[in-house]
Write a protein that binds this DNA or RNA. Structure first.
Lengths: 129, 129
DNA sequence: TCTTGACCTTCCCGTGACTGGAAGCCCCAT
DNA sequence: ATGGGGCTTCCAGTCACGGGAAGGTCAAGA
């Protein structure tokens, strides 16, 4: 299978697939003409990577998870730890974003949004209290 | 005032302040020895930038907001629009992150986290349904 | 057989908002 | 004069790709 077919079947852009090879996440074979030749195993890995990335895991997390995935003697505790760390980072991000959202919502609500210059948003940012 | 004092008073790293000058957000004067000399006006702008960045506005948003801030004849509607667009982006991010969090939480909860290899997290990622 | 167009290859640059570090100048105190 | 801290510029790296150029390959149609 060529990269275009793999891109179609995995939903990953060809560029991304090449990038994943560059950084050693996958190692597809090569045809005589230099084209990458993907086997089912590669497709499977790429699907794995696509899902892990969709869950927000970093590339390095993905590398770890992929290694665990392939290691039949892994301990599920190791996988769980990676996921839990990632979950904690996500929780932090959500908390931060919600704080931003709340502040912004207040400011937006307080702003008349007309053609006059007076604006609580700018007042807050400028610290003109 | 030199950059170190400004960094202390604004809480922004000196590197960041230099960067903001590089990209034209501020234009401090220079002493004869080449040192940046900051006036109150610069400090005020930097504080503004610090707050706007803390609310997650992009640098380009900040550039726009700063221009509006300095424009005495602005319409508050323009400010509000920038803030509302940003708010919408934040809401989207929050939604995405919450979806990730929920999925991850389910997976983490389902994983025994012991020394056996069986793991629902990897099963899900691998799509072995 | 030739050509067209879709595919594939590598390589390099750009993204956002900085951060780290090197090399070197400046200033003040001892 | 020497030491230490602060300042300067410039270059490179971050993360996970995306855009685009220059060129090789392949299958189908005229």
């Amino acid at each position: 299978m060529n990269i275009g077919d793999v891109a179609n079947r995995t939903g990953l852009p060809a560029k991304t697939i090449r990038y994943y090879e560059d950084i050693g996440l996958i190692t597809p074979q090569r045809d005589l003409n230099g084209y990458r030749r993907f086997r089912e195993q590669d497709l499977h890995k790429l699907t794995f990577l696509g899902r892990a990335r969709a869950l927000g895991f970093t590339i390095e997390d993905c590398r770890t998870l992929l290694a665990l995935y392939e290691d039949q003697s892994r301990a599920s505790a190791d996988v769980k730890q990676v996921a839990r760390d990632h979950l904690a980072r996500i929780e932090t991000k959500i908390t931060d974003l919600i704080a931003m959202r709340d502040t912004l919502t207040e400011l937006v609500d307080a702003c008349a949004g007309d053609n006059r210059p007076d604006c609580p948003i700018l007042r807050d940012l400028g610290g003109t209290d």
